[in-house]
């Protein structure tokens, strides 16, 4: 007996036909929809950051820092500090200690002069990245390397994967052309990988996306979270619009895609969520 004859005899033709249609399939599972997008997000608007104007220092804190304290904004996973600083010419932070923290500095404009207790001394500018593993303890100072022009920088602190490591310092220059419409890796956990490295399973990328472009990022390590910070321009991630200095934290995602309407400069931090 052929299949259609069997179905006709057994009265199952209509059912077989129905089962082959997507509408019935959907109806059967309507009460329990397929969750194809479990990504959780947290939106941090630029204007929601803590701000302080100390004359020579104008600073915006994404997370609680110095005089800004919000119990709901202490950290995002291992990302503890994201400071957006503008330091007046010739001014800066005198020698101060750190320990057990991975500190990454990204100059946006101007020059930043660094000196530390390990004997390192140097000036970093836009296009360069500085990293410091404070470990067992380090003292350093940071000053604007120019007497007149203001210096703008992002300073980022991550909790380390392991404590009491030997302190280390590094800085690296990047070819900014390599971040035009593609992710440029500037930091990883691997000394042999592109960019600087730190004692944490984190990866940082910069991108300068042209207007009307779309870019996708896939996690390097499953379970990590993503923190997407718009340095300049604007972007769209799913339903969320992001403007200059806005940020979007994402968890339970294997990656994400953003689109642009204008030219956009952004920093993406992939970080462990468990401190």
């Amino acid at each position: 007996m052929k299949r259609h004859e069997f179905l006709k005899l057994s009265g199952l033709t209509a059912l077989a036909s129905a089962l082959s249609t997507q509408s019935v399939f959907s109806a059967l599972f309507r009460s329990k929809p397929l969750n194809t997008n479990p990504m959780k997000t947290v939106y941090h608007a630029a204007e929601s950051r803590g701000h302080a104007n100390h004359g020579w220092l104008k600073t915006w804190h994404t997370f609680s820092f110095a005089g800004y304290y919000d119990p709901a904004r202490i950290h995002f996973g291992t990302l503890r500090v994201l400071n957006d600083d503008e330091v007046a010419g010739g001014m800066g932070f005198g020698t101060h200690p750190h320990d057990n923290m991975e500190i990454i500095t990204i100059p946006l404009s101007g020059a930043l002069k660094h000196r530390d207790s390990m004997g390192n001394e140097g000036i970093i500018r836009a296009g360069e990245i500085q990293v410091m593993s404070a470990g067992t303890g380090i003292q350093h100072s940071e000053f604007n390397g120019d007497a007149a022009e203001a210096c703008r920088l992002l300073q980022i602190w991550l909790f380390p994967r392991e404590k009491q490591v030997r302190p280390r310092y590094d800085q690296l220059a990047f070819d900014v052309a390599e971040r035009q419409d593609r992710w440029q890796q500037i930091l990883s956990p691997n000394p042999e990988d592109a960019g600087v490295w730190i004692h944490q399973d984190a990866w940082f990328h910069l991108i300068e996306a042209s207007a009307g472009s779309s870019h996708t990022y896939t996690l390097k390590k499953p379970g990590n979270g993503l923190y997407f910070f718009i340095i300049e321009g604007e972007a769209q991630v799913e339903q969320q619009s992001l403007k200059r200095r806005d940020a979007l934290g994402m968890t339970d995602a294997n990656g994400f895609t953003f689109t642009t309407k204008s030219g956009t400069y952004a920093l993406l931090m992939e970080i462990p969520m468990h401190v």
Binding site: A52, H54, L57, S64, F65, A66, G67, Y69, V81, F93, G94, H96, P97, H98, M101, W157
Partner: peptide, 17 residues
Amino acid sequence: VLMAQDAASAMRLVQLL
């Protein structure tokens, strides 16, 4: 009256003010 609940915040405030 300022308050600092972590060392980094305290150090930053002492440097700034």
